[in-house]
Design a binder for these strands. Structure first.
Lengths: 248, 248
DNA sequence: ATATGTCTGTGCGATAGCGAACATAACCAC
DNA sequence: GTGGTTATGTTCGCTATCGCACAGACATAT
């Protein structure tokens, strides 16, 4: 539990960077604790830092005027929070809120941009990651339109599990409902079905996945699409994304 | 109706580029007719070109395994089709389909990337535009979850109108239903309400907006959010997006 | 051990949207 | 014109989800 257990490379993006970039960047990273419910940025806030989660999950959550909410995408150890910093907008109309407590590496926007101006691997890697985020958002839109709560819960559990290690989540049904943008009772019903099937087990904010294969089979196709696309986009460690055409 | 009426600067992104970049890029643009229903790329296709619409609208449409569909975002004269080409993924799990016939300027991926490798204004402009697309997708996800068909139809009409000129759309209710991911009958009902209110007028695939202010007031907040954010992100003509921090 | 708050389960009636089947109405080709 | 096709309108029963209200179960502090 001491900070000595943490290392930048526990975040997949940081790990994927070539040694040269790591050497420049890592000294500027600050370990940052993320307690449950902490808001990393609010809708419209000008961002000053990006965060690379390690053992935490951060939700990008959209909150409507009437208070209703829906999750746009999830970020864990595979990604970073704050893409609009380098996309150029500096802010975005959603909230980044810690959904599963843990830690992240914090990097100042200025450092990030400095490295960006070298126009190298970091830029390309970030863009690719952003595309995987885009896929997640698109899929969320479709899923919200067409799939039943039961299926969406499965998708959500799987996405969250992938972003942590282990098979346990600390998460009340109320919170899940906020993320999915549905009633708490809807989640209760769906979860209790899964428990009866022996797929999950839960009690007072702790959810354990017992049978992941079945969970996958009960999920809508959305999980698989996001998973496959994320793997595709982020598997090649780094490599200048734009170059293939030029080597021809 | 001759091609002589078209000019690259009718597309807002192309217009926003500094003269120097325009000079390099414009000679490589090819005018490309976009008939209704034309598919610019299919889910998973490797893209070879990007398209800058002028007087057409292209929908990014997600089609599920069972054939149901939902629109992820809309692209018109303010944007371009094919962001995954420069985001690094080269493909994306959605279809780009022409929703309103017209024309676009076509540019080869290789040319685009060549200009990208100069790491200048084009890159930053494209990233900003991509962020506005992200906003649109996120908002679509929320809207799909929380808003009634009536409101969504208003949002959709407004978004589409903004991407064309004039107050008329050529679009059957069946097609709109595909975009919104709802039943055709649902659109019929919503549209007939609007017609009774004198907000729109339609007949066999032609829709005319008579009272835009009322249409805006009947729409959910989603239209305004997307509109505002798009304006914000793309109003600054070009300017190196990342630089402010460095000039300090 | 008791009290208090949090989490989960359940049971209503209400409703928006679905799926299917069918009716009308406009346009087009010949 | 006539007949065929495409677009729109209407109805009806069905289901998932909602909104609300409340009950039990568990956890923790005092």
């Amino acid at each position: 539990m001491t900070q000595h257990n943490f290392h930048p490379e526990q975040n997949h993006l940081l790990r994927a960077l070539p040694a040269e970039v790591q050497t420049r960047l890592f000294p500027h990273l600050k370990l940052f604790p993320l307690p449950l419910g902490k808001v990393l940025y609010e809708s419209g806030d000008t961002m000053n830092h990006v965060y690379f989660p390690i053992d935490s999950i951060v939700s990008l959550l959209y909150v409507m005027l009437n208070g209703a909410s829906a999750e746009i995408s999830v970020v864990g150890k595979e990604g970073l929070v704050g893409v609009s910093l380098f996309m150029g907008g500096e802010s975005t109309p959603s909230r980044a809120i810690v959904q599963s407590a843990g830690h992240a590496w914090q990097l100042s926007g200025a450092r990030l941009k400095e490295e960006f101006n070298r126009h190298g691997d970091l830029l390309f890697l970030m863009l690719r990651y952003t595309q995987s985020l885009i896929t997640q958002m698109a899929q969320t839109a479709v899923c919200n339109r067409h799939h039943a709560i039961d299926q969406q819960l499965c998708r959500w559990l799987l996405l969250s599990l992938d972003r942590l290690s282990g098979n346990q989540l600390t998460m009340t049904q109320e919170l899940i409902a906020n993320m999915l943008g549905v009633r708490r009772e809807g989640v209760t019903e769906a979860a209790s079905k899964l428990q009866k099937l022996g797929v999950i087990e839960y009690s007072r904010g702790k959810i354990t996945v017992l049978d992941r294969p079945t969970l996958e089979s009960l999920s809508c196709e959305c999980y698989a699409v996001v998973r496959r696309e994320t793997d595709r986009l982020l598997s090649y460690p780094v490599g200048p994304v734009l170059s293939p055409t030029f080597t021809a």
